[in-house]
Structures are given as structure tokens and as C-alpha cells.
Design a protein around this nucleic acid. Structure first.
Length: 575
RNA sequence: GCGCCGGUGGUCUAGUGGUAGGACAUGAGCUUCCCAAGCUCAUAGCCCGGGUUCAAUUCCCGGCCGGCGCACCA
């Protein structure tokens, strides 16, 4: 298939086109037309069917705008800002923090301020990696890839458009845990828009500034919960591991069972790789142009401990469809720290346990007069010390550091005691595995993989071989001729099918062959044609898009037949 | 953000210092008893701004958008 054929078809047939074209268009913003919106909806519905209904998770819907504090806690404010320095000679842009890392023994220069990075570049006389020109006097600028806005009037409450839908789930985890009756494991799913102010959006739907994500956050107890691997144990995964990428190796086909047994893939991630593989196949991704690629260590996100991408080959390039990330407890711990709230689940022991716990109860009426303004800090230091080293309270005096000084405190004033405490359980910070699907890229891939050309009666034709379940329109209803009452009859049939909940296109314009081609091109899997026999004997023909074969069937039960074809309960050959 | 190339009806394109022609598609009609047939008619276009010029779609500059390469892709 030639490059650009999808974009051309997309625009001509109403799948998608650039937003605000009369104003010149905006890079990275696209609007789905009638066909595209329907295709996208169907893919989202198929996703929901698997990840919410069949897997038994809960779907939520959070707002696109979230307060700045959320992204401070999540790390996005810091790490979504890339420090860039531009070379005055060759105009190349380079990651300023990477230059510093190369020139120094620092490993995490990304965390430094732009000013500090600039100083280090000047100090180490770092040069442009392309042409060598000194960069000492060049400003270090930050590219913030989040869209910023203000919540309410004034600038006192900065807000950001979410760069991933996930944060809407993590931030209100306590609420969702409550709905889940505090029972791990449970999953929270969300389909919604995310926004990234990309420096250079490219290639149509593949790199957008406003995109649709379908994400599942599956929370579980890392010590106790195991994924139901038996459901997917025999699914064969095309794995392109990090090692293979480094050594020039290729894709290795392993069953889920084998991949987990040899430790190639984390078990929860492996479960979702297996579960998703069949789903991709069902919605029309070509399994011969599909693989799972592991992130190399250097490309892992700040939050991810391990990550595999589902990738599809489209127009010669491998593109990421989904990231399956093992995020550990990173996000929940960040939000716990950011809010002081509980982002964990209480797990009750089978039997309560009684433990001896050393405690302090500082006597402030003594410490206050004795230490003045340091007293509060000393009390806190005592509480910290008793957890760390209870033996320090064995002597008459205990030494703590507070306010920059060492203080000797009489143990009797610390209120040291060993209490018997009965604990009925403990707080477990859940781990999370996150399948994160890019819906727009899936739409594009389904179009690209479905696009086909063949020859019918010596005429070339193009058709979209997308599965009936995701096709924008399920049935085209066509009168063979626009005369002799055929059109009226066809309209009645179309109404009946619509009333039965089937997506129907009615078309009486042009020759029958032309109308079949139109439906082929937008991927309509079946056409119902009303002909002269229909008027006499209550039958119509049903035509199959991919083969152009036809069957004559009775009109009573037509809706039921088409529905079962759409839902995959029977095939056209079985008619 | 940088470099190179490009931007003419919905789509694909021809062409020009004196504002444009085709094909396909679309609509109306004729014809037509199952796969883009034919005929008639119709709708519809020079990306935006500035400059040069009597006159700019055309030449120059800038912008926007697109393709490719670089960088970026948390």
C-alpha cells in the first residue's frame, strides 16, 4: 500500500481530517468524521467489553484538567520539562541535561534547574555534540510538554491538561479502593482524552497533541495476588526482548506460560500481553505485523520498573499501540506523600498478632523548659529514634540530633516504654500494572491493516477488510434500481434494521456496482440488495464485502442474521 | 525547534505576471434487472499576510500546514 493512501481515503470518506483547516489547520489536532468516529467508538466499545466487562473491572471518568499539585506529586512537572540548549552554529537542539551528564559524572542532571545546568555547561566547557561549538553562552530553555491553564480567575490555581489519563485514577485511588470494599486486587479503567504539547507532531494520527487513551490500572497485592495465568497460558507471544534489541536478535515466540517460567516477562504484564493479543486480532490488527517489544532500560519512564509495548508495523514503521508498564507502587506513594492521605489498602491478618513495640511519649513539660525552641524537633527525633534503634533508650540518657545540635535527654523525660500492641492487619501499598492503549493509533492501524486491493470482474477495487464488529457501518441497504417500488421496499428494510439496532447506510445513487464500491471502501462488511425477486417472495440478497459473494435469504429474521454476522456468532459461509 | 522539499475544486493533478483546464468523486435527470458502463446538466479551487508591479495563483520575504531527515517522544 502506498504512503498517503490512508490519509487520502480518510479525508475523502470521512474518517479523519485536520482540525480547523479553514484557519490553516493545527499540527497534531485531528477531527474524526462520521466514519472515523464510528470506527473509534466501536474500538473503544470492544476495549470496554474486554477490560471492563469481561475482566470485571470498574470504569470511571475523571476530568481532563487537574490541579498543578497532582503533577507536582506525580513527577510530571519535573520530568515533563525537558531542558534544551540550541547550538548557535548548526542550530541543532540538544538535551542540555544529557550534555551535562556526558561532561560530568552526574547521572540525573534532569533534576537540576536550567540555571544550574547552564552553569555546568559553561563550567565544563561542553560543546555541541554535532559541530563542537561551545555552548557556554547559550540559554538553557525548558520545553514543558504539558498544556498549562488556570483554574478559575487569576493565576493562583494553575491547572494542567492531563498528559495521561492514569493520573485521574491514581489521584482518587482512596475513593476507588473504598468502592472496591478495600479488597485487592481490583482494576480501574478509563477511556478519555490526554494532551501533550508535542514539539513536532507528525504522521497524522500517530503523534497527536490531543489523543484518546484507554487505560486500565490494575491494583494488586504484590505479596499475595497472582494473575490468572491459566486463562492465557497457551497464548503465543511474539516477544522482542531488550536483550535481543541490543544484540541484534529477533522476535522470539513464547507461550505466556514459558515466558513467565523463564522469567522473561513479569507475570502480571505477561497476563495482559496474552489477554490483549487475542483482542488485537479480533479488532483487525494483522498478527503478521505485530510484536511485543520490551523497553530497554534507558527508555523506561520515570515511573516504570518494566515495560513492554505492543507494536504494529504500519507503512514500514513499527508504531507503539499500547504500553504495558509495571509501575510498582510509585504513583500511589507519590500521591500519599503529596497529600498525607492513605493510598494503601488495609489487609487483615488471619489471626491478630500481638507484638511488643517500643514507644516514646515525650514529656513536653520537661523538654519545653529545658530545650526551648528545639523541644518540638527533639520530640520528633525521639519518635524517629525509637523505631530505628530502641536500644538507645537503655541508658539513663539518650542522645538525639535536632536543630543542628546534639542534645542529651533523660530517658525518663522521653516517656520510653515497651507496649504490647495487638495488630489485626497492615497497610499494603498496592502495586499496579498498567495496560495503556492509544486509541488513535489503533484506529490508524486498523485502517492501514484492513486496507486491501483486489480485482473483481477485471476491475480493480479497494476495500477495508475490517472486522464486522468494528466496521463503522454494518450493512448497506441498496435497491437494485431506483424504480418500480424497489426503493420504497429497500427503505422499509433499512428502517427495520435500524430499529433492530444495526448501523445501516442507505444508498440509491448510481449504479449498483458503484454503490458496492462505496461501501467496500468504508469497510461495510455486508450489503443487502432489494431486487425484483424481493417484491415477489420476501427475500433479499446479502453480499459479503471481502469475497463479493452473495446469498439470498428471507427478510423475516434478516436483522437477527445480520446481528449474528456482526457479532461473530456465525460466518457468511454459514448462511 | 533546525534543515531540505512542497501547498491549484472534496480527491488526484495541468498550467500561467493579465485570477485557471482535466480526471475522479458528488448532486439532478436520462439510461440500466447485481459489481466504479454511457449521455446531459450542475456544484466546487490557486494556504495566509506583506513586498515588487498598472496587474501576483505565478516573482521575493515571512507565517501556517504537510512530507522527509535531525532533535524530541516524559
Amino acid at each position: 500500500m502506498s504512503d498517503g493512501a490512508i490519509a487520502e481515503l480518510a479525508k475523502r470518506r470521512g474518517f479523519f481530517s485536520q482540525t480547523a483547516e479553514p484557519y490553516g489547520g493545527v499540527a497534531g489536532l485531528y477531527t474524526y468524521g462520521p466514519q472515523g468516529a464510528a470506527l473509534k467508538d466501536n474500538i473503544e466499545a470492544a476495549w470496554r467489553e474486554l477490560f471492563v466487562t469481561r475482566e470485571g473491572h470498574m470504569e470511571i471518568s475523571a476530568p481532563d484538567v487537574l490541579p498543578g499539585a497532582v503533577f507536582e506529586a506525580s513527577g510530571h512537572l519535573e520530568t515533563f520539562d525537558d531542558a534544551i540548549v540550541e547550538c548557535p552554529e548548526c542550530s541543532g537542539s540538544h538535551r542540555a541535561d544529557h550534555l551535562v551528564e556526558d561532561a560530568t559524572d552526574l547521572e540525573d542532571a534532569e533534576a537540576l534547574s536550567p540555571e544550574r545546568i547552564g552553569e555546568l555547561i559553561a563550567d565544563r566547557e561542553a560543546g555541541c555534540p554535532v559541530c563542537g561549538t561551545a555552548l557556554a553562552d547559550q540559554p538553557v530553555e525548558k520545553f514543558n510538554l504539558m498544556f498549562e491553564t488556570n483554574i478559575g480567575p487569576g493565576s493562583g490555581s494553575p491547572g494542567y491538561l492531563r498528559p495521561e489519563t492514569a493520573q485521574g485514577i491514581f489521584v482518587d485511588f482512596p475513593q476507588f479502593a473504598e468502592y472496591a470494599r478495600n479488597q485487592l486486587p481490583f482494576g480501574v479503567a478509563q477511556i478519555g482524552d490526554a494532551y501533550r504539547n508535542e514539539i513536532s507532531p507528525r504522521k497524522g494520527l500517530l503523534r497527536l497533541r490531543a489523543l484518546v487513551q484507554a487505560e486500565l490500572e490494575h491494583f494488586f497485592d504484590p505479596d499475595r495476588d497472582e494473575p490468572p495465568l491459566e486463562r492465557v497460558a497457551d497464548v503465543k507471544l511474539p516477544l522482542y526482548a531488550a536483550d535481543a534489541q541490543r544484540t541484534g536478535g529477533g522476535v522470539r515466540s513464547l507461550t505466556v506460560r514459558a515466558a513467565v517460567e523463564e522469567g522473561a516477562v513479569e507475570p502480571w504484564v505477561a497476563y495482559y500481553l496474552g489477554r490483549s493479543l487475542e483482542w488485537y486480532d479480533e479488532i483487525g490488527v494483522d498478527m503478521d505485523r505485530f510484536r511485543y517489544r520490551q523497553h530497554r532500560s534507558e527508555e523506561l519512564s520515570h515511573y516504570a520498573a518494566d515495560c513492554w509495548d505492543a507494536e504494529a508495523e504500519v507503512e514500514g514503521d513499527w508504531i507503539e499501540l499500547t504500553g504495558f508498564a509495571y509501575r510498582g507502587s510509585y504513583d500511589l506513594e507519590k500521591h500519599a506523600a503529596g497529600t498525607g492521605e492513605e493510598y494503601s489498602v488495609f489487609r487483615q491478618y488471619e489471626e491478630p498478632v500481638t507484638v511488643e513495640r517500643p514507644t516514646v511519649d515525650p514529656d513536653m513539660s520537661e523538654l519545653g523548659p529545658a530545650f526551648g525552641s528545639d523541644a518540638a524537633a527533639i520530640a520528633a527525633a525521639l519518635e524517629e529514634l525509637v523505631e530505628r534503634d530502641p536500644d538507645a533508650f537503655d541508658d539513663e540518657r539518650v542522645v538525639v540530633e535536632a536543630g543542628g545540635d546534639r542534645h542529651e535527654v533523660p530517658v525518663e523525660h522521653a516517656g520510653f516504654a515497651v507496649e504490647e500492641v495487638t495488630e489485626s492487619g497492615e497497610h499494603v501499598p498496592p502495586h499496579v500494572v498498567e495496560p495503556s492503549f492509544g486509541i488513535d493509533r489503533l484506529v490508524y492501524t486498523v485502517l492501514a491493516h484492513g486496507y486491501s486491493e483486489d480485482t473483481v470482474d477485471g476491475e480493480e477495487r479497494a476495500y477495508l477488510a475490517v472486522p464486522p464488529a468494528v466496521a463503522p457501518t454494518t450493512v448497506g441497504v441498496l435497491p437494485l434500481m431506483d424504480r418500480d417500488g424497489l426503493a420504497e421496499r429497500a427503505r422499509t428494510v433499512a428502517e427495520q434494521l435500524r430499529a433492530a439496532g444495526i448501523a445501516v447506510a442507505y444508498d440509491d445513487s448510481g449504479s449498483i456496482g458503484r454503490r458496492y464500491r462505496r461501501q467496500d471502501e468504508i469497510g461495510t462488511p455486508f450489503c443487502v440488495t432489494v431486487d425484483y425477486e424481493s417484491l415477489e417472495e420476501e427475500t433479499v440478497t446479502v453480499r459479503d464485502r471481502d469475497t463479493t459473494a452473495q446469498r439470498r435469504i428471507r427478510t423475516d429474521g434478516l436483522a437477527e442474521t445480520l446481528r449474528s454476522l456482526r457479532d461473530g456468532d456465525r460466518s457468511f459461509e454459514e448462511l
